[in-house]
Computed example of a mutant assay.
Amino acid sequence: MREQSPRQQGPRPSRRHLLLGGAALAAGGLAAACTSNTEDGDSGGGNPQAGTLAGDNDKAGKQVTIGFSAPAADHGWIAAIAKNAEEQAKKYSDVTFKPVEPTNDINQQISAVESLIEAKVDVLVILPNDGEQLNQVGRKAMDAGVPVVNLDRVFPDHLSYRTWVGGDNYGMGVSAGHYIGKKLKDKGVADPVIVEIQGIATLPLTQDRSKGFADALKTYGFEVTAKQDAKFTVESGNQVASNLLQAHKKIDAIWNHDDDQGVGVLAAIKQSGRDEFFMVGGAGSANAMREIKAGGVLEATVTYSPTMASSAIKLARLIAQGKGMSDLVELQVPQSITLASETITKDNVDRYMPLGFES
């Protein structure tokens, strides 16, 4: 659930003013093999993030309708989720894609999902604003015989979903912690000032990221000096970074959980003129990759890929058609699939750049 930013004094920078488009993407997608069900084998669409198709599973089969619900695309990563889902569905001639109006209102999302259940869709793909608050409507769908592919923010009740697919939040923190810890250790920094800028502190995904970060830093004998949440927005990212820069006259490293709010973080850093530290981002947006390639305080970002939405559509289709994943021996789609978090640096950024998107 997107929370409102705290009241701030003075004008807050917009995306246009900050010049950088924000968002999050990463590498990776599901390794389930499939090929196009079109005659020429063309995967269709122009989105490089949408999964390629390979194997008999993607030959045209029973017609299925996939219902889709997600939060409003007021964040680059969420916008990419919706785009990936839609473009993946277009690849299949046997899929009817039925999205409902995206919303950040919990009750409206519940009502939208209920409308899909009443419409008797064959399968649902749901990225809930909040897994706990949407848990009961997921259970309602499952009880009605509509299998649910729970995307990203997990429902706490396993009876509320057939399959979960998402990123590795703990792994994001571990990847960021190892990059920062190793670099500081190699530089011989004994007591570093390490700052952490979270997303929404109350979300389990944020807590997992912070725990992974702390656990990885411990292996180097380091710990987080200060952390504050920036609510996944450019404006809050800018304000929080400004506050932290003022509070700490010397910083050795910053981990920012989210590249979209990182647009504001980077703007605050540039305005401050500070460059004594290095920074690691989170999720892998196109603008973050450009910053990494150009050189500067942002040296790396750890991935949390919106390609998971493409994978969710692929899995939903297989579940609705009673198929398993062609690369696995088992006859049914697994209950959970976690994508790896990779580290993008100047050394490998060109490999990841084609996966980037503009929010």
Rank of each mutant, 00 (worst) to 15 (best):
Q4G: 09
R351M: 11
Q109R: 06
M172V: 12
A253D: 02
R317G: 00
G295P: 14
Q4I: 10
P6Y: 03
G61R: 08
I251P: 00
K346G: 07
D40G: 04
L217Y: 05
T35I: 04
G51D: 03
D327G: 13
A320V: 04
E358W: 13
V149W: 03
T38A: 11
T35H: 04
D122K: 09
A32I: 09
N150V: 05
M325L: 13
L298W: 12
L298V: 15
K211F: 04
G262W: 00
R162D: 09
S285Y: 04
V174C: 07
G221N: 09
G145A: 09
G21Q: 11
S359V: 03
H248C: 06
K346N: 11
K323A: 04
I180F: 01
E87I: 08
K59I: 07
P334V: 09
A320N: 02
G295I: 14
T103Y: 07
F278E: 05
K182D: 15
K293I: 03
M308A: 09
A144C: 11
Q261M: 15
L331F: 11
N243Q: 15
V240E: 02
A201F: 04
P354H: 10
A54G: 12
S14G: 14
A112N: 14
L339I: 08
K185E: 15
V174K: 01
G221S: 10
T202P: 00
D191N: 15
K83D: 11
I269L: 06
N84W: 03
F278Q: 10
V154I: 14
L205R: 02
T301C: 08
A144M: 10
T233M: 04
T225Y: 07
D259Q: 07
K218V: 08
L318S: 02
R12T: 14
N169R: 02
D260W: 02
L298H: 09
A241T: 15
F68Q: 06
K62V: 11
Q49V: 14
V95F: 01
L159W: 01
A32N: 02
T35C: 02
F357S: 00
H257S: 14
L315V: 14
R162F: 12
E330V: 10
A214S: 15
D58N: 12
K314I: 06
P99H: 04
Q246L: 13
V64F: 05
G171P: 09
A312F: 01
D58W: 06
D157W: 12
L245Y: 06
F232H: 01
M142G: 01
D252L: 01
S359L: 06
T301F: 13
E118C: 03
V146M: 06
T225I: 10
L151A: 12
S311P: 01
G295W: 13
Q136P: 03
T163K: 04
V240M: 05
I110R: 01
G22M: 02
I292W: 08
V263K: 00
M353Q: 06
D258S: 09
D157L: 13
S160W: 00
D105C: 10
R274K: 14
A216R: 06
V240Y: 00
K91E: 00
T219H: 07
G181C: 14
L298E: 11
L151P: 04
K182S: 15
A201D: 05
E196S: 08
L18W: 01
A89L: 12
Q335M: 11
L159S: 15
A119M: 05
L18T: 14
I344F: 10
Q9A: 12
K346P: 03
A241C: 15
S160G: 06
A201K: 08
V121L: 05
Q198M: 13
N243A: 14
F232E: 02
G67H: 05
